[in-house]
Simulated assay, not measured.
Amino acid sequence: MPAPWHRGRVVLLGDAAHSLTPQMTSGGGMAIEDALVLAQELDRNDDL
């Protein structure tokens, strides 16, 4: 899905945002990174 990876109250994280083949097994790390970036972005604004 092209950026932005959100629509309304839905956000794509990890493998949903970074389509990988199953053998690459890096989805868990990307999900953690995406969660951190999401938390930083949510922290920057008072009003969602």
Score class of each variant (00 low, 15 high):
residue 1 M to A: 06
residue 1 M to Y: 10
residue 2 P to W: 07
residue 2 P to A: 08
residue 3 A to F: 09
residue 3 A to V: 13
residue 3 A to L: 04
residue 4 P to N: 02
residue 4 P to A: 01
residue 4 P to R: 01
residue 4 P to W: 03
residue 5 W to I: 10
residue 5 W to D: 00
residue 5 W to N: 01
residue 6 H to W: 14
residue 7 R to V: 03
residue 7 R to F: 02
residue 7 R to Y: 05
residue 8 G to Y: 12
residue 9 R to S: 04
residue 9 R to N: 11
residue 9 R to L: 01
residue 10 V to P: 00
residue 10 V to F: 08
residue 10 V to W: 04
residue 11 V to E: 04
residue 11 V to I: 03
residue 11 V to W: 08
residue 11 V to F: 12
residue 13 L to W: 02
residue 13 L to R: 01
residue 13 L to M: 09
residue 14 G to E: 09
residue 14 G to P: 05
residue 15 D to W: 05
residue 15 D to N: 12
residue 15 D to M: 05
residue 15 D to T: 14
residue 16 A to F: 03
residue 16 A to I: 03
residue 16 A to H: 02
residue 16 A to R: 04
residue 17 A to I: 02
residue 17 A to N: 04
residue 18 H to Y: 10
residue 18 H to E: 04
residue 18 H to K: 00
residue 20 L to K: 06
residue 20 L to G: 07
residue 20 L to I: 12
residue 20 L to Y: 08
residue 21 T to N: 07
residue 21 T to F: 04
residue 21 T to R: 08
residue 22 P to W: 01
residue 22 P to T: 08
residue 22 P to M: 03
residue 22 P to V: 06
residue 23 Q to L: 12
residue 23 Q to H: 12
residue 24 M to L: 15
residue 26 S to P: 00
residue 26 S to E: 15
residue 26 S to H: 13
residue 26 S to W: 06
residue 26 S to F: 06
residue 27 G to F: 01
residue 27 G to D: 07
residue 27 G to C: 00
residue 28 G to E: 06
residue 28 G to Y: 01
residue 28 G to F: 02
residue 28 G to L: 09
residue 29 G to L: 07
residue 29 G to T: 10
residue 29 G to S: 09
residue 29 G to C: 13
residue 30 M to S: 02
residue 30 M to F: 13
residue 30 M to G: 00
residue 30 M to C: 05
residue 31 A to F: 04
residue 31 A to M: 08
residue 31 A to H: 00
residue 31 A to D: 01
residue 32 I to G: 02
residue 32 I to C: 15
residue 32 I to T: 02
residue 32 I to A: 14
residue 33 E to D: 08
residue 33 E to Q: 11
residue 34 D to K: 10
residue 34 D to L: 06
residue 34 D to E: 04
residue 35 A to T: 14
residue 35 A to G: 15
residue 35 A to E: 07
residue 36 L to G: 05
residue 36 L to A: 12
residue 37 V to F: 05
residue 37 V to H: 08
residue 38 L to D: 00
residue 38 L to K: 06
residue 39 A to I: 06
residue 39 A to R: 10
residue 40 Q to R: 15
residue 40 Q to N: 11
residue 40 Q to H: 13
residue 42 L to G: 05
residue 43 D to H: 14
residue 44 R to F: 00
residue 44 R to K: 15
residue 45 N to R: 15
residue 45 N to I: 11
residue 45 N to F: 13
residue 45 N to S: 11
residue 46 D to K: 07
residue 46 D to S: 09
residue 46 D to A: 11
residue 46 D to G: 14
residue 47 D to V: 13
residue 48 L to G: 08
